[in-house]
Simulated assay, not measured.
Amino acid sequence: MKTITNRKLGSSDMEISPIGLGCWQFSKGSNAVGKYWDSLADEDMNQIIKVSIENGIDWFDTAEVYGNGASERVLAAALDEWNIGFDEVKLATKWWPLFRKAASIEKTIERRKDALNQRPIDLYQIHQPFSVSSIKNQMKAMAELQKQGKVRNIGVSNFNEKQMREAHAVLAEDNLPLVSNQVKYSLLDRRIEKNGLLAAAKELETAVIAYSPLEQGLLSGKYHDNPEMIKKTSGPRKWMGKFKENQLPKTEPLVSLLKEYADQYNVTVSQIVLNWMINYHGSAVFVIPGASKVKQAEENAGAMTFSLTGEELEQISEEAWKVQLYK
């Protein structure tokens, strides 16, 4: 058993826990994106944030589009309530590019800072690669924000290898690093290992921040144990094929192996998954599982209190390759 320590995010000087808290679920049911999750009570959200910090998670990932800033405001209010200093935790948020030009990045930064109650933006990310402006213009705008001290580091999200390389090259013109690329990645979705993105990220010293590491709960094993549970969930998950009772047997072999290791380490299946994520590729991958319950926040952090062996990591990897959901 070995507690996993903080690590540098990419080529930045920012050291953070390998597991952060994804805050999409704090959208309060606002806007189309926020309605993906049930609205949580303020007290529940505050406790989730507090417990995450108490158990070693020291950074949070949110976004403008999560409830039109609702998630950012919830996060900042909770940190204020618990008297968490500005530099005690790190905050990452994202600019939403849909139907916007790069000029919007600078024009809207004060709204993001206001939503976060003027807490530092440690990582500012382009949320998607579909702005009406070029990647070059977006990166130039982001570089200007960093030069002005309005953001501390620059990242992207959902960029493919080519787009990530272009963003990196543009920032390099100003001697600035592309610190991270936030993408979907899990044991059941390992496309970034086959399409060149992960290898390129390692080459560029750009950290990979993995969202949906538990495949929206599928990898927790709870739906394999009780397939009827999916009918009680919020959002579109109940209609996704991977959660259907006749599809669960496809991923059962992997989940069964994860359960064996969970029993061996006296932890949960989710903790085995998260531990694999933050260990298998050395220090290259960070993960941002969400939490809608305090117990889940505790589990997320608990995944950093032990380390799977190299042999165990490889065995899980081999089993996962047999049951990939995405080709």
Rank of each mutant, 00 (worst) to 15 (best):
Q138F: 02
M139F: 00
M139G: 00
M139Y: 02
K140Q: 00
A141T: 00
K147P: 01
V151D: 02
I154H: 01
G155H: 07
F159C: 02
Q163M: 12
Q163W: 07
M164S: 11
E166M: 12
A167W: 01
H168F: 13
V170I: 15
L171D: 00
A172S: 13
L176M: 15
S180D: 05
N181L: 03
N181M: 07
N181F: 06
V183C: 08
V183Q: 09
K184D: 12
L188H: 07
R190N: 03
K194D: 11
N195R: 07
G196F: 11
G196Y: 10
L198V: 05
K202M: 11
K202W: 05
L204C: 07
A207Y: 09
Y211H: 14
Y211D: 10
P213L: 10
E215Y: 02
L219Q: 06
S220G: 12
K222P: 01
D225V: 01
I230F: 10
K231M: 10
K232H: 11
K232N: 14
G235H: 13
P236G: 09
R237A: 10
R237L: 14
W239T: 14
M240P: 03
E245P: 06
N246H: 14
N246W: 09
L248Y: 11
L254S: 06
V255F: 06
S256A: 14
L257I: 10
K259I: 02
E260Q: 14
Y261C: 05
Y261K: 09
A262R: 02
D263E: 14
Y265R: 09
N266M: 03
N266L: 03
V267I: 11
V267F: 01
V267H: 02
V267R: 15
Q271K: 01
Q271I: 03
V273L: 06
I278A: 02
I278V: 15
